[in-house]
């Protein structure tokens, strides 16, 4: 299983801060498609994905047990 984290506006729009999904072996691009099909109202265009706390590329592949965090545009500072 993959644990997906949602932050900030994504957390509010999905109504959850995390969920598990059976996405091992899928790419980041496929993960985004899965999230988009579950939450069609989300805009993920500017969202980056981090796997296990490191920014990932859209072709990177998820392994069982990974955490995938959806990172909307940041605004620290």
């Amino acid at each position: 299983m993959i644990t997906i984290f949602y932050f900030a506006g994504l957390r509010e729009a999905t109504g959850t801060d995390r969920e598990e999904a059976d996405l091992a072996g899928k790419t980041i691009q496929e993960l985004s498609a899965w999230v988009n099909s579950k939450y069609p109202h989300l805009s993920l265009d500017a969202v980056r994905v981090a796997i296990n706390e490191e920014y990932a590329l859209s072709e990177d592949v998820l392994q069982d047990g990974d955490t995938a965090a959806l990172i909307p545009p940041v605004s620290g500072g």
């Binding site: 932050f7 900030a8 500017a46 920014y55 909307p72 545009p73 940041v74």
Partner: peptide
């Protein structure tokens, strides 16, 4: 790029601020 987000709270609403 550091994953930190701020939400502005105004008298008439709120908004998560993007990049």
């Amino acid at each position: 790029s550091v994953p930190i987000w701020k939400k502005e709270i105004w008298e008439d609403g709120t908004e998560w601020i993007g990049d």
